[in-house]
Design a protein around this nucleic acid. Structure first.
Lengths: 216, 216
DNA sequence: GCTATTACTGACCCATCGGTCATCAAGGTC
DNA sequence: GACCTTGATGACCGATGGGTCAGTAATAGC
């Protein structure tokens, strides 16, 4: 035999890369199984690392969970602020834009999975539900409420509770996102969020009832 | 001392009453903690029975879970059929009725909790998500889709994908129910489902944009 | 009352999984 | 190339909680 082949080392030291990799793996596992049912062994395996290595970067399973949610939240925050910036356009121009953006964000991220997980574990981790509420849901709802109020002030939108109207606007998107997350994997009919955004925007803005018959 | 007081027996034999009581207790615990984090000991305690007694009526924790969901589902099924019966009224009469009914049902039952639990455990118990889909969500969505299609056939509703319109109709209610379940306990602003039903009905039917400006 | 039946319990077993630790080896430094 | 720091590991511990079972006491039948 020739000189021993310099076999690939059994592992490498990658202090900076690890945390993000672990958090990403954890996101997947938590989103699939929920917090309680997720096994750290699985997270470790998916991150290509031993279970003990997790504890070099995260003190407890709960801390890891928090980190994962926080990581999933912060990029969305920026997006929410971006939304807020667009505000001063007529209602029937801004609403389709906002809803389409929600659709796009939902498709290009793991928000659905995180939402599912936060919903499922909300009683066990109230502080997490709170973070999610304060930093994501409440923000988004606030932006929409403000948009509606502004439109009302301009006499452009029907009077009524602006916050409830915000529910009218996002509700179908939220439901659609959860639908895809929960029911499509078990045989539910697929759902195109972009189509939903488009059509729902038209519906809430101008009404489902055909104009000829409308009589508020 | 006089004759021994005939102390209340330490427990009673109540073969027929137990299963329902256990299922009710389990509903509460599962809805609070989710499946994995729920302890059978807690279920037993809340049912006023020992843990071992659970196994006289349910073979495994999973079976108990199934029973709970099934029990929560079947009454709703009837309600769904009832909905379907009302169908042939003008859209702007039937929609407020349906949405208000959803609000009432949500307030008078544990549907919210069950939904939360099914969402959270959907990957761990796909068959449960399926049951819930087939027997509740899909039914309800079907009723709404049919209502919309009928209205479209009468030229009463705007054209478009009837199923997506069904999302436009229920989405805000679903979101509201989850809001109450998840965020209100951690400081989210309270939400009146009846108000939401009322106002949302007006919004989707006749449009958020003030009639004078409307121009589909 | 006496007995047979069985609903119910308390104490136990043991698999799973979060968390720890002694040890190893990658790789920077001189 | 020798040494040291430290990222990483595998084998382990202990608690938790699902599930079991021999025994106990409520009650139906006579």
């Amino acid at each position: 035999m020739p000189d021993a082949v310099p076999a690939a080392p059994r592992w490498r030291r990658r202090k900076t890369a690890r945390p993000a990799e672990i958090a990403a793996a954890a996101l997947e596992v938590f989103a699939e199984r929920g917090f309680a049912a997720a096994r750290l062994e699985d997270v470790a395996a998916r991150a290509g690392v031993s279970k003990a290595a997790l504890y070099l970067y995260f003190a407890t399973k709960t801390d890891l969970f928090r980190a994962v949610v926080a990581q999933a939240v912060s990029p969305r925050l920026d997006q929410a602020r971006l939304l807020a910036a667009v505000e001063d356009q007529p209602l029937d121009r801004i609403v389709p834009t906002l809803l389409s953006l929600i659709a796009a964000v939902a498709q290009g991220s793991h928000i659905g999975g995180v939402a599912k997980m936060v919903i499922g574990e909300s009683r066990n981790f109230p502080d997490l539900a709170q973070i999610w509420h304060d930093q994501v849901v409440s923000q988004a709802l606030g932006v929409l409420t403000a948009v509606v109020e502004r439109a009302q002030a301009r006499g452009e939108a029907r009077s009524g509770d602006a916050r409830l109207y915000a529910f009218s606007l996002v509700g179908p998107m939220v439901t659609g996102i959860l639908w895809r997350e929960v029911f499509v994997p078990v045989g539910g009919a697929p759902l195109d969020l972009a189509d939903l955004a488009q059509q729902h925007a038209r519906a809430v803005l101008h009404g489902l009832v055909t104009p000829s018959r409308a009589a508020a």
